[in-house]
């Protein structure tokens, strides 16, 4: 095993680095944009603080549309947009665009669901104390929903890893692309197996960390 791996050491490290960039940017997009979008969905829902049928319907539809694309088609569909954003549609940087879009849609939905679990009474108590919407969100809702938010992000990160494996089609590279090019197309089945093992370990590790953090911060 070690022999095959050392033979391809540079390529493997390169692929791992590409995966980290793609998944890392996806996580950032999920947290920086997906979290607010999910919160907006929650707040605009009927009966909630900023109830707004119009905004809710539009954002909800957008999230659904993005999520219903087969991911490969989304990548192709977004090529003009990607070119606009990055200047090129090829390469690891370009690959982060469709990944970020799906990351935002994916995580915002999970955020919305976690926030829906916050007891209505807690929100009422906050309002009765004179909290503004911003205070209700940051001092109450996020605090109460925090373990759900972490678990959702964990699930999302694992999906992002999976999505990132097909970015080879636009030259995004990454560990999935490596497994296909060297392992599958050059008939090095053992190499493909090792990559799969690496990915299994990675996913296990992420799930373990996510679940542990969620458990520690959950005082309910």
């Amino acid at each position: 095993m070690l022999e095959t791996l050392t033979q391809y050491e540079t390529e493997i490290w390169q692929a791992i680095a590409e995966t980290f960039v793609m998944v890392g940017v996806s996580i950032l997009a999920a947290v920086i944009i997906g979290l607010p979008v999910g919160t907006l969905l929650f707040l605009c829902r009927k009966g909630n603080l900023l109830e707004n049928q119009f905004v809710f319907s539009i954002v909800n539809l957008l999230v659904n549309i993005i999520r219903s694309f087969p991911f490969l088609l989304l990548v192709v569909f977004l090529i003009p947009f990607t070119r606009l954003m990055i200047g090129t549609a090829i390469g690891t940087a370009a690959a982060t665009v469709p990944l970020s879009i799906i990351a935002i849609a994916h995580y915002s939905r999970l955020v919305e669901q976690s926030l829906l679990d916050v007891p209505k009474g807690v929100i009422e108590a906050a309002i009765s104390m004179g909290a503004s919407v911003k205070d209700v969100v940051f001092k109450f809702i996020y605090v109460e929903a925090r373990s759900g938010l972490v678990l959702g992000l964990t699930t999302s990160i694992i999906s992002f890893i999976s999505y990132s494996t097909i970015m080879g089609v636009v030259g995004g590279g990454g560990i999935g692309d490596f497994a296909i090019r060297y392992g599958y197309q050059q008939f090095k089945t053992d190499l493909m197996m090792y990559v799969i093992i690496i990915m299994i370990i990675l996913v296990q590790l992420i799930q373990f960390i996510g679940t542990s953090i969620a458990r520690i911060i959950d005082k309910r």
Binding site: E124, G130, F140, I217
Partner: peptide
């Protein structure tokens, strides 16, 4: 919002923030 700060309210199911300590629940 300002006026509500001089009107306290308590509830049947207490409505405390479960992820805040007793101290944090009051200090908020």
């Amino acid at each position: 919002r300002q006026a509500r700060k001089s009107i306290g309210m308590i509830f049947q199911h207490f409505n405390l923030v479960a992820n805040k300590t007793v101290y944090e629940n009051v200090v908020v």
